[in-house]
Design a protein around this nucleic acid. Structure first.
Lengths: 116, 116
DNA sequence: CAATGGCATTGACGAACGTCGATATGTGAC
DNA sequence: GTCACATATCGACGTTCGTCAATGCCATTG
């Protein structure tokens, strides 16, 4: 079995490549929606914090202090990242743990690749 | 006249990788600024049109009709793409030719790569 | 049960964005 | 120089965005 063990969600085919022909409105909108999620310094930093965490996950309480914003604001950003499929949310007890969806960023990166 | 003397800057090392440790405010802002430029469906489509052109370049007159927007609006978007370093502008006669900066998208893609 | 703590939602505000029409700038043709 | 054309800039408009304080919801603890 040569198939990958897990993570089929956004990993393989998330969007059409930017440089692979003229995109129609739907494709352009889908891609732009993903990039827009990364178009805010706070969200970029949140992603980097989660990625740098020991177990690759973090709760809101771990995120508010590093970014210096209120809890509702951080919660708002995380919701947006979850909705775009870049981040996964898992409730464990009273805490909500956020983690970067495996392959999601790579899938986005592949839409920017020129050839290889 | 394009005010850009040369442009190797964004090609090689444009930004710090998202998943390569906690980004500071400056790094996050730089990255977000690039992604924000791709965070609009019109600009994504403009890029795809330029990339799909025969000689990898296009003037505003080639772009207004495909995106269905006014000339000032297209000009505005192109200015933004040029300012972020994703697109180069070259004036030839009465026309301004826009082309995707070689390596710019790849540099951005590399900031999203996890490892493999 | 009530109390506590973590997070989401709401409503509001100013700032930034996308779009347009009108106009300015600049280039080549006559 | 004058005209026509391609593009950029300006000013204005409605919409979206990022942020916060206040509040609500849910799970755990006593």
């Amino acid at each position: 079995m040569t198939t990958l063990p897990l993570l089929p969600p956004a990993a393989v085919a998330c969007c059409s490549p930017v440089t692979g022909g003229i995109l129609d409105d739907s494709q352009a909108e889908t891609l732009a929606r993903m990039f827009k999620a990364l178009g805010d310094p706070t969200r970029v930093k949140l992603l980097s914090i989660i990625a740098a965490a020991d177990d690759q996950e973090a709760c809101v309480c771990d995120l508010t202090e590093p970014v210096g914003l209120s809890q509702p604001t951080v919660s708002h950003h995380m919701k947006l990242l979850v909705e775009t499929g870049l981040v996964a949310r898992e409730q464990r007890g009273r805490w909500a743990y956020f983690s970067i969806v495996p392959g999601a960023l790579d899938a986005l990166a592949s839409t920017l690749a020129s050839s290889s």
